[in-house]
Write a protein that binds this DNA or RNA. Structure first.
Length: 288
DNA sequence: CATCAGGACACAG
DNA sequence: CTGTGTCCTGAT
């Protein structure tokens, strides 16, 4: 049994911020194992995290090859994060300020793009537990077991050999066709995702939207959570509600809201989105 | 038993 | 380019 290792953190982190980062809907690969510990995986590696006495600890259950640097990169635990938070307009925006204050250390994870795209295609009209469930069914069937009741994402190449009907049997519903068709496009292109990641936000988004089942919202989620494009501002029904009630955008169309968000929240608007999303989800900001 | 989700798409205006 | 009905499935 390996021992917990301390993960250096330059500033304050909170249990709620960490919890929301891991359970708040940007990743579906983590499970709480107690009130202060989580187990999850990324890039086919299993990691456990523990938050105690203001410090973050980590370990790998089955002597994995993961390094501290990889975990810090994944969790966005560096000084750039503090600068990003500081650049958000919390000084003049009381709604955002309330969320930022209540959720110290809430970050945007740096996840693998292929896996993020997969999960967010599944996310359409589904709740977080449902997305976890159907995603896990696919990983259990075509991914490899990582122990601890976790399975790796099989990869699009493997999924390209699976029929739409087999996905439907795993309760994907109309998303089965999307997954199957996307797999036909990207499954045999080993450079698809690395190419997307290198494009500008605008170019990457218009490229992703060409995929069946990928609209502006899912493309933004993929780019924000899977390609570190913090200019992405996913607008789902929750965020739309926040913009309506707290920013007076009831009469705005979808694209007008998107424009407003980028202008108001700035270069790191994706991070602002995550704060507002969690704040709304947790009832930290009361709706009118 | 009917309605509606953390969306996209096809089709109409 | 903006506004609706439909698509699977499960929760309410």
């Amino acid at each position: 049994m390996s021992k917990w290792k301390e993960l250096a953190r330059p500033n304050n982190l909170s249990i709620l911020g960490l919890k929301e980062t891991l359970e708040g809907g940007q990743t579906f690969s983590w499970c709480p194992t107690s009130t202060i510990t989580w187990i999850g995986c990324f890039r086919s590696k299993v990691v456990e995290l523990k938050f105690k006495d203001g410090m973050l600890f980590w370990k790998t259950p089955n002597s994995g090859t993961i390094t501290e640097e990889e975990i810090k990169d994944y969790l966005w635990l560096d000084s750039e994060y503090d600068g990003a938070v500081d650049q958000l307009p919390w000084r003049s925006d009381h709604v955002l300020a309330k969320c930022v204050k209540a959720l110290p250390g809430l970050t945007i994870l740096n996840q693998p793009l292929d896996e993020v795209l997969f999960y967010f295609i599944l996310s359409s009209a589904k709740s977080i537990p449902q997305i976890k469930e159907i995603g896990s069914l696919v990983c259990q069937k075509w991914g490899k077991s990582l122990g601890n009741n976790l399975w790796s994402f099989p990869g699009w190449s493997k999924l390209s050999k699976v029929s739409e009907d087999e996905f439907r049997k795993l309760k994907l519903g109309y998303r089965a066709k999307y997954i199957h068709n996307v797999a036909q496009v990207v499954g045999n292109d080993p450079y698809y995702f690395s190419t997307i990641s290198q494009l500008s936000y605008i170019d990457a988004k218009s490229e992703l939207i060409r995929l069946p089942g990928v609209g502006p919202k899912i493309a933004d989620c993929a780019l924000l959570f899977g390609a570190t494009k913090t200019e992405a501002f996913p607008i789902d029904t929750w965020i739309a509600k926040v913009l309506d009630s707290h920013y007076g955008l009831e009469s705005f169309t979808y694209s007008q809201k998107a424009l407003f968000a980028r202008k108001h929240f700035g270069l790191f608007c994706g991070l602002a989105q995550q704060f507002l999303f969690s704040g709304e989800r947790l009832g930290l900001i009361k709706s009118k």
